[in-house]
């Protein structure tokens, strides 16, 4: 099964990191990644490729549109089918965690990302 995941982070090096961390899955055709460097870019991408994207992984702390804002915009604009949204932020940020859950995030992950945990969670969501 081919799953498109949109990763939103203002750090450009997140892209090669994901591609390497998930190279087996990409090679096997399990996942397909798209990247955006800001909330605005992510929304633009979703506009074009809405039907393809099944899961969105977004950083919260970004200049300009925050991950939380992006989350609420996604929840407003894309009702069917609702994409799975996982939020990522710095360790111990309870306020954002609470806010993200309230706005309808499916999962909440803290930095530094534990990739084996992320893989586990991705598999759970995709196979459900």
């Amino acid at each position: 099964m081919h799953t498109k995941i949109l990763v939103v982070d203002d750090e450009a090096d997140v892209q090669p990191l994901f591609i390497q961390r998930f190279r087996k899955e990409i090679k096997n055709g399990e996942f397909d990644f798209a990247f955006a460097l800001s909330g605005e870019e992510a929304l633009g991408y979703l506009d074009q490729h809405h039907s393809e994207v099944i899961l969105i992984l977004s950083d919260i702390n970004m200049p300009g549109m925050t991950g939380i804002e992006l989350l609420s915009r996604i929840r407003q604009s894309y009702e069917k089918p609702p994409p799975v949204v996982m939020m990522i932020t710095a360790y111990g940020d309870d306020e954002n965690r609470h806010q993200a859950m309230e706005k309808g995030a499916n999962e909440f992950l803290t930095k530094p990302l534990d990739f084996s945990l992320l893989k586990e969670k991705l598999n759970t969501f995709i196979h459900d």
Partner: peptide
Amino acid sequence: AHEIQNPLNFVNNFSEVSMEL
């Protein structure tokens, strides 16, 4: 702290992934 945390995460992640490679 935030500015150091980010590069450190990359250092750790890229090191780990390189070992796998």
